[in-house]
Design a protein around this nucleic acid. Structure first.
Length: 313
DNA sequence: AAGGCGTGGGA
DNA sequence: TTCCCAAGCCT
């Protein structure tokens, strides 16, 4: 959960998830939809699927016990060098380094490393420096947690608290007065603009919902049926493009979501089915009552769309 | 190896 | 408003 996600955001999700899935075996046996439901709103939903696959692996290959060695951990889906190092050092007490976003920043400043932090050679150097520290330290678990916490609370990205920093006399960036400009900003991926034309259809207190494809954005999550294009559609062309048996669509409102790599304009419509037609239900299309919607895995974007449609009623 | 993959808080 | 960035990983 903590991969690319702030601690404060994870805290509220951790207990419910662990209560529902207290062991790898419990997670391994669950329906994917149940796992996604407890993950909804957290983002990066692939993590949830990979975590469940890791649980299955742990049951099958490690007798249900989470391995505590870096190579075994890294053989699990979704577990990279950082996650493996964290578990091995903090849980397994192994003398192994970790480099996350925080540690990377702390080290860059400490050594006045002004190279682009995502460059493979710079990453490799950061791991080597972290390894030096963990080899020299008293307690690897405390060092690793401490480095991350230090980065999150003191050696922060925009305005580091150098005045209270215990390393201010040893920091090369501070000595050069460059702590604000190191590390250099990562190159941002350009946001591609997308238009999602959502059609909210209600009948008898239920809402027609559609499950997104297994790959790509919001994979496997539910949403109001939508047409996704690079350019905005008129209601007329939307009506033509939709495969639903619609009598009419009415435009309600729009909103925008900014993702890491995408700017998604969500255009909310109300759809009216042709009278007396049946909407085919299947694995990927269902009528959902309010209670179903609560329990189903929806992205926050999909929930916003439903909320906006309800407001405009 | 560069880009896909969410969401929200803070500057 | 807009941009940056989070306890990264996979392809």
């Amino acid at each position: 959960m903590l991969q690319q996600t702030q601690v404060t955001r994870v805290i509220e999700r951790f207990e419910p998830f662990m209560t529902r899935f207290p062991t790898p075996a419990a997670l391994a046996q669950a329906e994917e939809e149940t796992v996604l439901a407890l993950w909804q709103g957290l983002g990066y939903y692939r993590r949830a699927r990979m975590l469940q696959r890791a649980a299955i692996d742990i049951v099958e290959r490690f007798a249900g016990e989470v391995p505590l060695e870096v190579p075994s951990l890294m053989s699990l889906p979704g577990v990279g060098r950082y996650t493996a190092g964290s578990i091995a050092s903090i849980v397994g007490k192994a003398r192994t380094p970790i480099v996350d976003g925080n540690v990377s920043r702390v080290l860059a400043r400490l050594y006045e490393d002004d190279r682009p932090p995502d460059d493979p050679e710079v990453v490799s150097d950061a791991w080597a420096r972290a390894e030096q520290l963990v080899d020299a330290c008293l307690d690897p678990a405390t060092l690793n947690e401490g480095l991350m916490e230090f980065g999150a609370l003191v050696c922060t990205p925009a305005t580091p608290q150098c005045n209270i920093c215990p390393l201010q006399d040893q920091c090369a960036a501070k000595a050069a007065g460059r702590q604000r400009e190191i590390p250099v900003a990562k190159r941002q991926t350009k946001k591609v603009t997308m238009h999602h034309h959502a059609i909210v259809i209600r009948r008898g207190g239920k809402t027609l919902m559609h499950r997104r494809a297994k790959g790509g954005l919001w994979a496997g999550l539910w949403q109001a049926p939508a047409i996704e294009t690079g350019r905005r559609l008129t209601t007329t062309s939307l009506l033509e493009a939709s495969e639903l048996p619609l009598a009419d669509v009415e435009y309600l409102t729009s909103t925008t979501r900014l993702l890491t790599h995408r700017r998604v304009h969500l255009h909310v419509h109300r759809g009216v089915l042709r009278p007396r037609v049946r909407c085919p239900q299947g694995a990927d299309q269902r009528w959902m009552a309010a209670l179903d919607l609560e329990a189903a895995p929806l992205s926050n974007a999909a929930r916003e769309v439903l909320g906006l449609a309800a407001e405009m009623k």
